[in-house]
Each structure stands twice: as C-alpha cells, then as structure tokens.
Design a protein around this nucleic acid. Sequence first.
DNA 1: GATAGTACTATACTATAGTATAGTTACTTT
DNA 2: AAAGTAACTATACTATAGTATAGTACTATC
Lengths: 130, 130
Amino acid sequence: MKKTVEEEHSACTNILRPVRDSLDVLSGKWKLPIIIALTFGEKRFTEITQEVHGITDRMLSKELRDLELNGLVKRNVQDTYPVKVTYALTAHSKTLRPVIDSLKNWGILHKKKLHEECREHKAKRKISGN
Amino acid sequence: MKKTVEEEHSACTNILRPVRDSLDVLSGKWKLPIIIALTFGEKRFTEITQEVHGITDRMLSKELRDLELNGLVKRNVQDTYPVKVTYALTAHSKTLRPVIDSLKNWGILHKKKLHEECREHKAKRKISGN
DNA sequence: GATAGTACTATACTATAGTATAGTTACTTT
DNA sequence: AAAGTAACTATACTATAGTATAGTACTATC
C-alpha cells in the first residue's frame, strides 16, 4: 500500500511539531550541558562553571534563569551564615534522560565515523602513491 | 560507596564530550527538521521548503550544504532534460533515528506538562476566588 | 587590613544565525 | 512570445547568541 502525498505530509508534521517544541526549549550551546552537569546532584554556581567548560558567568546566569522559567531547574537558597545557592534538576528535567543518552550515543558514533573516513583517506593516498 | 569528586567529574565529562560533538553538527533551527523531512524519502529543493514550514531558500541552501559536508545528506543530480536535483538521507544520518524519536517524545511530554500547569493555575484562581 | 571567594549584574562588544527581497539561468508550458 | 517552474545565488539587513572584562555586596581567611 503506497501512502498518498497528504498522508506522508501529515506523518511528517506529526514528528516535526513536537521536535520543534523540544528544540525551542533546549536550543543553544549551554542548556543541555548545564542539565548534564546537574544530573550528578545539585551544584553551586561556581561548581557549574567549573564543570561546564568554557561557559562565562553571564551565560550561566542567563541560562539558569531560562531553565528555571521552563521548570527544568530549581534554585534553592539556603539561608546559612553566608547564603549558599544551589541549583538542582526538577522531576520534569529528569525526563530528558533519553534525549541526553541518544545524543551521547550518536556523538560517539559520529566521531567514530569521522575517524574511519580519516583512515580510508590515508589508505587511498598510500595506494595512489601520493 | 560514595564517589569522589574526581570520579563524578570524569563521569560528567564522559557524557558532556559526545553530547557536544552531536550538538556541534545538529545545532540550529533547521538541520533536524530538514533531516526529518527527508526520512520519508528523497525530496527536491522546493518540496523541502514546502514541508519544512517557514524556512527560506537561502537557509535551506546553506543548511543542505552543511549537512552534505558532514555526510548527513546526499545530493543527487539526475541529468534528465531539465536537471532534477534530489536530496536523500545517507546511511549515517539514518542512525539519528533515536535522537529524533527521543526529542519527539520529550516535546509531547513537555507540552502536556505545560497544559497541566495551565489547568492547575486556573483551578487555584477558582479556589482563591480571583 | 589585604586578599580572596561566592554569586552574581552591568556594559560593551562580536559573531553567527536567521530573514526579506530580488535576481539568475535554463527549460517548459500555454 | 509570455508566463511559469526549478534550483538556486546575491545583497542587505536584523536579531539573538555568545564573549570579554569589570564591578558589586557580602563574608571569610591570612
């Protein structure tokens, strides 16, 4: 049974719509890395900057605010002598596990593929004598 | 057995590194939508613009070039009377299936959560009489 | 009392992503 | 011959993402 153009089109948008919804919330260089850093337990501001290599204070501050607004991160202020601020994942952000896992696995696969291509390229040069 | 700080740190970077590798290749508003459009079979330039809502010719042209360079899309030119150009997924980009599925599922989950919050909000207003 | 850590914010900037609009070449259909 | 489609490219622009550097208010430590 062949699908009609219309059926194919609606099957496509059925995937496209929710993927876009995800990308709207998770896009950018830092949001997923921050969430990954917090999967190992709540962390303080400076601890996150150390874990998420290359992020600036400004970006971390901004992204944490964004993530909090979207219910993906919880900000806890402990009113000890000097205030201690920690950030933790929420129940909702823990549902991102499969997304993170699949991206991790694909990243490993992709890198492996690049290495293979590199080896093939070298082998070809050997044969042709360049 | 409690993990040391060092163990936790290396466990974290073991996830962070490959996720970053993935994001480097897939980041942006259009790359995944284009790939999704092509999962239903090869398509011509204008067919993709129709499927991927809101993309401009310029962006599609640029992103297709990027994707081709990274080995995620194959450009086929059929030298019929008027040349017909089609774009298709490669074996490599088909391995993105789990990434797309997890993003799709999470997008659905996230939207559902937003709706629930909306309902809760309305219920609260009812109780407090505002 | 000087230095340093924590958790930021402010200012100013650059770079990249993305948009809007028009133009091109070559062929097809009316 | 005129209008239209396919597959783009060119130009010019805006908007957002991200960077660099410095500063602040508060403690804490040497």
